[in-house]
Design a protein around this nucleic acid. Sequence first.
DNA 1: AAGTGGTCTAGACCACTCG
DNA 2: GAGTGGTCTAGACCACTTC
Lengths: 248, 248
Amino acid sequence: MGTTQLETVPEPKYWHLKTVLSQALDSDFSVGEVLPNERDLAARFGVARATLRQALEQLELEGRLQRRRGVGTTVAPPRVDVSTAQYAWPGTSGDTWQPVDCTSAVAPVAVGRMLGTDPRDELHTVRRIRTTHGQPVAAELLYVPAASVPQLPAAEAPSGPARARIVLRELQRLGLEGQDRAVELGSARADDARELDRLPGAPVLVVTTRYFAAGRTAAVSVATYRADTCRLTFGDSGDLEITHPAPA
Amino acid sequence: MGTTQLETVPEPKYWHLKTVLSQALDSDFSVGEVLPNERDLAARFGVARATLRQALEQLELEGRLQRRRGVGTTVAPPRVDVSTAQYAWPGTSGDTWQPVDCTSAVAPVAVGRMLGTDPRDELHTVRRIRTTHGQPVAAELLYVPAASVPQLPAAEAPSGPARARIVLRELQRLGLEGQDRAVELGSARADDARELDRLPGAPVLVVTTRYFAAGRTAAVSVATYRADTCRLTFGDSGDLEITHPAPA
DNA sequence: AAGTGGTCTAGACCACTCG
DNA sequence: GAGTGGTCTAGACCACTTC
């Protein structure tokens, strides 16, 4: 028989450490509890601080821990389920987004391609944020070509949230013919990071939505969700809005 | 007026480095091209190798780079769109999954809770992998309680892919009443990592699907997609392309 | 055997929060 | 000002791929 060499592979220290810590979190800690600081933990496990941090980073990525500079490391609550299932224009009554601002700017190339607009054209760019349980979970930029909101009063428009709401209202005059979503991993840009109360580069789930109306792509939304705290739910087909079939 | 201190914040080196590299990738490199090795790059930018690696890690996370031990760092192709929109039992004709194996094992606690089974019960556990363009993109474990496939021949069943296909076939006898999806960030377990040709701990998008039939949760699937190479698409409502289970 | 990325160390300093 | 996590360094060795 073959000398299979099965698992002679030395497991990296940080990987083993992560497993040990993960079990400790399950058994010896409760949500919100603070862990010993990194220097103490590293000493306790007999590893360098950088190695310990590699384990902590993974646990934070998995939503098990929460680390805040100047404060400490705490046990994170379970991830929040946030729904992305709504089939409607943004700003329709019932959604949980809050308009923050609205500016004019050229779109990123990827967005410009989806909209089929001239890359040099300025678009209405609506900033919205989404919170649940008082915590910010997502920051969004909604790109609306001028052609999609032809009746928008041009010059005398106000700024800030008021202007954002006007653009959303105008958008809703169009008949929504379909929409389209994609999810991918990204890292937070500086402005998104600030809205989400995270450091730049923090891992985020980027949800790109295309809204179709009048036979073309009428708007594109790029929403970045905190990957550490969020689980995105898609109330698929079948009986929509299955809340909780769990027996009490 | 307030001395606002606006942006006195020193940008971290690795963050700036990432920006510079990102622009260089856009202008001076093409897909598949190999970058100089990490020691050279670090020297060229006048930083420690660890700092350079921090920038490379982020770019890999964003799907811009691909790194392989013993080989080098190459410019990654754009992410692949993979659809998760199918409304049907797993294994229905037309899906792109390939059954690999089927074992009996107790489910993870989270899965057990969704199924409402006794945590000590053994479930049929079907292993499948999904490939596109010859590359593995996802590994799945499908958990099927014995109660969901009552007519499954018990003892004399074969093993491997054949057994997996039998379980899938039995499952399709049930009428699918609904399904439910959630997406979150995770890190690859050792077994998934092997199937996905990545190292353990690699970032993955975890898609959890609940299948409802006979008034309860009849099966649960946990699929882990390579976060570096995949964009998950959800062909939402509007014009939906629901593939209904074919009446056999 | 040579060259690559992956892991690990033992330090240092910085930015932030809080009492 | 004390304590925390975040950044950075300059090394070392290991696992893997390729020639």
